[in-house]
Nucleic acid binder design. Sequence first.
DNA 1: ACGAAGCCCTGCAAGC
DNA 2: TGCTTGCAGGGCTTCG
Length: 273
Amino acid sequence: MPELPEVETTRRGIEPHIVGQTISAVAIREFRLRWSVPQDLPQQLEGGRFLLPRRRGKYLLLDVYKPEGTHTLMIHLGMSGSLRLMPAASPPLFHDHIDIHLESGQCLRYNDPRRFGSFHWLTGPNHPLLDHLGPEPLGPSFTGQYLYDKSRGRKTAIKSLLMDGRIVVGVGNIYANEALFTAGIKPTRAAGRVSLVRYQRVVQDIRTLLASAIEQGGTTLRDFVGGDGKPGYFAQSLQVYGRAGLPCRVCSIPLQEVRLSNRTTVFCAHCQR
DNA sequence: ACGAAGCCCTGCAAGC
DNA sequence: TGCTTGCAGGGCTTCG
């Protein structure tokens, strides 16, 4: 389940293989993703040349240069999507929905069993899905002060606030659980009742966790693989996620599980207040 | 405006 | 063994 580190890992993994490459053909076997894949996507892409791939939150932004203009292929991996490079001759397997063939003879292949992902073709710099996104968690404007200001008067649980893409992008369920544990904050605490100092701590912890996960190639849960097909190695260092009922790694009392906005939330009632 | 719930989808695991 | 049921999750959408 790709979170921001997995998306960034994918971006870095595909970058050296697609930059400067001309798109020779596009094959779409399944149009029914989260939103319908544009019917004319093959015509739009073919003959274009990939520039440096970008990322905004969990969206991959693949700029495609053509003499008549540079437009952008916006891809979201949803919960089960992956982009991998492989020889064009590799026969597509189950759930391999989209192939983007390159002049190099390689093929950028999109696989997504649950089809929660999406492909959009952007003809301008903006898109409704990007317009209201909050700052990047690893960027300079995501600070404790920023979160503190945004949270004043809010009664929603701090974990829900951290997972709200309008507040900050790319903090999914795993990292929200983990960061709140290391910061010692109870996930159910009202966002408006968390001090500035504690927000500064949780921001630092989110940054550290995400950066560390990116360095390690993303969290491997189930079948995630990066652009090069290698699994990530972050999963083994998780403190609370997926460990409900197991002893806290710090104080050894059993970790508790609650539902928060329909998301599994795990915390230590002793270490987190 | 805010907060919570619903929905999309498939794979997997648990229960009968 | 084979069914059914429940759960997982990002994030947009709808409802209260």
